[in-house]
Design a protein around this nucleic acid. Structure first.
Lengths: 201, 201
DNA sequence: ACCTGAACACCGTTCAAGT
DNA sequence: ACCTGAACACCGTTCAAGT
C-alpha cells in the first residue's frame, strides 16, 4: 500500500525484507518490546539492513501487523448492516479488545489510531469510523457535532487498562459512558463485548 | 509525605538531594525528557547518587513536581463550592490543562492519574475526584454506577492532544462528550476552559 | 543497488573502592 | 552512612567499505 507499484527490488533485498518481517513477527510475539538488533541478528542481516527497510520501529510494526489492522478496517462494513448505534459500539469494542492484550499487534493498532500523519492507516481508520458515525447520524442516534478524530481520542483509555483488575469489565463500562456521551438521550445499547471473537475475517 | 518522620539524613546527603532536585527542575523545564546522567553531572554528583535518592525516573518527577500535583489536589475543595456539576467539569478542565503543555510537570500529573500502586498520588487524586463526584451524585447530576478510576481512564485522551490542531478547543469538545456521558439527561454545562488560570493557589 | 558490521553516542544501572 | 565514577550491558543510528 505504501509503495504499490514501485519498480521491484533486487531479489536479495526482497528476500531479506521478507525474512526480517517473519523473524520480527516471531520475536515480537514473544516480547512485544523486542528491539531491532536481536531481530537483525536472528534474520542474519546487519542492523543497517533492518534500518534501511524500516527507518523507524513503527514502520516495522505497521508492516508486520498490517493484516491485524486491516482486519479491523474490514470489520466495519460487515458490522454496518445492523442497527447503526449497535454497529458503532460493536466496532469500538473490537478496537477496545486490542487494548487488553498488550501485544505487539496492539501497539500497531494503537499507532494506527493516533493522529500521526506518518502512519498510513490513521486516515483509513478515521474514514471507516466516520462512515459508521454517519449512519448513526442519519438515524438521529449520534450528536451532530462530534468528529471521528474526537472519538478516537476518547478511546485512548483502552491503552491504559493495565492496572485495572478485570480490564474487560472496565473497558465495557467506560465504553458505556462514551456511548452515552456520543448518543445523548438514546436508549443505551448494552454490552455484548464477547471475550474472543477475533475470527470475523 | 513518603517518609514524614524518618530519622534525618546525613547533612551532605540532604544537601545533595536538594541540589539534584533543583538541577533537575531546571533541566526538565528546558527538556521534558532530560536524562539522569547529565542531571547528575550538573548537580556535581555521580550517577549512583541520583540513583540512590531516586531509584526510578518517576520518583524524581514525583518529587520535583510535587507542588504542581498538590496544587491540583488543593483546587478541588475550593472549586467544590459551586454547582457540583460545574465543579466537576472545572476540575477536569484543570486536569486537561496539563495535557496540552507536554512539560515535565505534565508527565508527573499524568503519572499521578494512572492506576499505578507505586505512585503515592494516585490514591489522593482518586479521592478528591470521588468527593467531587459524590456531590454530583447527591444532586442527581451524575450517573450512579461510575467510579473515579473510570473517569480518570476516560481522561486519558488529554495526553494525546498533540497532533490535533487547536488542542485547547479539542480538549474542550471531548470533555463535553465525557461530561454528557457522565451526566445523562442533564443540561450541559458549557465550556469555560480558560486559557491560563493556573494562579488559583 | 544493496549489504555488512564496526563504530558512535548515548541509555539506565551496578558496585567495588573510597571518605 | 554516603558518595564516587568506572564498568556493564544495552539502545538506535550511521557510514565507509565491500559485493
Amino acid at each position: 500500500m505504501t509503495h504499490p507499484a514501485r519498480r521491484p527490488m533486487r531479489c536479495d533485498a526482497e528476500a531479506n525484507r521478507a525474512r526480517i518481517i517473519a523473524v520480527a513477527r516471531e520475536a515480537l510475539s514473544q516480547d512485544p518490546d523486542a528491539t531491532l538488533k536481536p531481530i537483525a541478528k536472528l534474520a542474519g542481516v546487519g542492523p543497517g539492513t533492518v534500518y534501511r527497510h524500516f527507518p523507524t520501529r513503527e514502520d516495522l510494526l505497521v508492516t508486520v501487523y498490517r493484516s491485524e489492522v486491516e482486519a479491523l478496517l474490514d470489520t466495519a462494513p460487515l458490522i454496518a448492516r445492523q442497527d447503526p448505534r449497535a454497529a458503532l459500539r460493536h466496532w469500538l469494542e473490537r478496537l477496545a479488545a486490542h487494548g487488553r492484550t498488550g501485544s505487539a499487534a496492539s501497539q500497531a493498532v494503537r499507532a494506527a489510531t493516533r493522529a500521526d500523519p506518518e502512519n498510513p492507516y490513521y486516515t483509513r481508520i478515521r474514514l471507516v469510523l466516520t462512515e459508521l458515525m454517519a449512519a448513526c447520524r442519519t438515524a438521529k442516534q449520534l450528536r451532530s457535532d462530534v468528529t471521528a478524530g474526537e472519538v478516537l481520542l476518547l478511546m485512548s483509555y483502552v491503552w491504559n487498562l493495565d492496572g485495572s483488575s478485570d480490564p474487560e469489565h472496565t473497558a465495557c463500562r467506560v465504553l458505556d459512558i462514551v456511548m452515552d456521551g456520543l448518543c445523548p438521550g438514546t436508549a443505551p445499547t448494552h454490552r455484548v463485548m464477547s471475550t474472543q471473537d477475533s475470527a470475523m475475517t
